[in-house]
């Protein structure tokens, strides 16, 4: 025979799935939310998103090439792009370019590449970037523009977000809850907030797409949303004037974005279905606790980062049910 036979162990076939396919699948699932933000925030949304993605790609390329000195660049695997989009989705649409670039540097540089790149980072890189910005630039990061100012960017007029109103209610302003937009407006996204988080509807389309493509399983998003609903429902029943209705909690702030896209990040979430449920329930619980009792109006990012830290522990204790295992 002319050519040498290839030998390797079974299996000799592959499903054809790849890291790239999964990453680009997530990006496709993010498109509806991006379109909604373009409709409501116009130029600002476009500038922030493009800046963030380009900066993330650049930092990933530069770090792999000049600091890690790896021969192969990894910017085409889609993970840096996701980080870029998610970082943009988590900031107000009037955030100046230089702050976004700092955020991208922290997200990719500190959050991802210091640990060795894709697959090694313990924390969700986009959230590391976001929380860094939130703590370093609290004013810029918490003044959200009102919707509908399509042509303005940093000069956009800002207004109170639903979450801020909810926080005011907790602090005793009984009329604040009445100023909330209707549930329908919250659902389709006609309210202020970070640019990608406003439309629960668009994010849910993304979720359905990812479930259909089997990119993620239902466990994490469903357990987070269910926990938030139940826990905030209990609080609402205790005092409806202070605590907003559970549906309002579900539709406001970064909850949907976090539950669907951030908490489900492969690298930083648990590996077993049981572990995913524990992780999701804990995130939901922490989010509501921070929203109602903490200093910040929104608790999603912190809740996810905290649970990211617990992921190895969850992996260690939540083992899948072994075949033939007898219940004790």
């Amino acid at each position: 025979m002319a050519n040498k036979l290839i030998v390797s162990l079974s299996p000799h076939v592959h499903s054809g799935d790849s890291v790239q396919k999964n990453m680009y699948g997530v990006l496709i699932a993010l498109i509806p939310a991006l379109l909604v933000s373009l409709i409501y925030f116009g130029v600002g949304a476009a500038v922030v998103t493009i800046t963030s993605v380009v900066a993330c790609l650049f930092f990933e390329w530069a770090i792999t090439k000049f600091i890690l000195k790896r021969e192969k660049t990894t910017i085409l695997d889609g993970s840096a792009m996701i980080t870029g989009v998610l970082l943009a989705f988590n900031v107000p649409s009037n955030l100046p370019v230089w702050i976004i670039i700092i955020g991208a540097l922290v997200a990719i540089g500190v959050g991802k590449m210091t640990f060795g790149g894709l697959g090694c980072n313990p924390f969700n890189p986009a959230l590391v970037g976001r929380v860094f910005l939130l703590i370093s630039f609290p004013v810029q990061m918490t003044s959200w523009p009102k919707i509908g100012q399509l042509t303005s960017y940093v000069d956009a007029e800002t207004g109170a977000t639903p979450l801020a109103l909810m926080k005011m209610a907790v602090h005793g302003d009984a009329s604040a809850l009445e100023q909330l937009p209707s549930a329908f407006d919250l659902f389709i996204g006609a309210n202020g907030g970070s640019l990608g988080e406003v439309s629960a509807f668009a994010l849910l389309i993304g979720l359905l797409y990812m479930l259909w493509k089997k990119i993620i399983t239902w466990h994490i998003p469903v357990s987070i949303l269910a926990t938030v609903f139940v826990f905030s429902g209990i609080m609402h029943m205790v005092n409806p004037e202070m605590y907003a209705a559970p549906l309002t909690h579900l539709l406001t702030g970064g909850l949907m974005l976090g539950a669907i896209f951030m908490a489900t990040d492969y690298v930083t979430s648990p590996m077993t279905h049981k572990g995913m449920l524990v992780y999701g329930i804990a995130i939901g619980f922490l989010t509501v606790v921070i929203r109602l009792f903490g200093a910040y109006p929104e608790g999603m990012s912190f809740a996810i980062l905290i649970m990211n830290a617990f992921t190895p522990l969850i992996n260690n204790y939540c083992k899948p049910k072994r075949f033939g295992e007898v219940k004790k």
Binding site: K4, L5, I6, V7, S8, L9
Partner: peptide
């Protein structure tokens, strides 16, 4: 000389 090529 090589007679096969290992791919594992």
């Amino acid at each position: 000389p090589h007679v096969t090529s290992y791919d594992g």
